[in-house]
Design a binder for these strands. Structure first.
Length: 211
DNA sequence: GGATCGATCGGCT
DNA sequence: GCCGATCGATCCG
């Protein structure tokens, strides 16, 4: 399978976000492939975007967003969660796409045991039986990072490098009718960028983090 | 199903 | 000090 290369990411962030939908995010962990289909993303674009981490300029934390496209920007929030972004546009311009949800495809048992070390092996969608539903496995930016073993060590890592342990594989594109857009999750305020429909998701996927 | 709240800590106003 | 691109538990209806 073809890995998405630098040219894919070195474009307008909204375009990259839209086109990342349906592509396959792959993490190689302990020699095993963990993978999911990207079903939900959000674009964060430049210092003028008041929801973007670069809104107050460059800092040590957001430095990766100012770096070259095709690299990861991984940050730590709420004292316990990590979130994964893919850096876009040209070096020097801070922009990225947040990966918000995946449909589980490969390495599901390994991902389950990372998310639920106690009873992760119990596969059940029935409430009260100790099992967890697959929609909870990768449905959320922090959830998918936990399942894939992604933390700050991946901040700044090149997803386009040969032998990368985290990358995106090309899959068949989806038609525009399959894509929905709306305001970004957790973004509040009345600025133009704050209400912009920069969240993209597959309309019919049951794996998006919120319907 | 929806609202609310606690956890937990790094970053920056 | 304050708050966050979140999650999961709990309470209510």
């Amino acid at each position: 399978m073809e890995h998405l290369g630098r040219d894919f990411f070195a474009r307008d962030t909204l375009t990259v976000a839209r086109e990342l939908l349906a592509q396959r995010l792959v993490r190689v962990l302990d020699g095993e492939r963990l993978a999911g289909r990207i079903v939900e993303v959000e674009a964060y674009v430049g210092e003028e975007d008041r929801a973007c981490h670069a809104r107050s300029g460059r800092t040590e934390r957001n430095a990766s967003m100012y770096g070259p496209p095709g690299h990861a920007y991984v940050y730590f929030v709420y004292g316990m969660h990590h979130c994964l972004n893919v850096v876009t546009e040209r070096e020097g311009f801070p922009a990225a796409v947040l990966v918000r949800a995946l449909e589980p495809l490969e390495g599901i048992e390994a991902m389950r045991s990372r998310r639920w070390p106690e009873r992760g092996h119990v596969v059940s969608v029935v409430e009260g039986r100790g099992g967890r539903a697959d929609v909870e496995l990768l449905g959320g930016p922090a959830r998918l990072c936990q399942a894939l073993g992604i933390d700050r060590r991946f901040d700044g890592v090149d997803l386009c490098a040969p032998g990368a342990h985290l990358f995106v594989e090309r899959a068949a594109a989806v038609p525009d009718e399959a894509v929905a857009a709306g305001p970004r999750v957790g973004v509040r305020g009345d600025g133009a960028a704050l209400v912009a429909p920069w969240r993209f998701y597959l309309r019919d996927s049951r794996y998006v983090s919120r319907s």
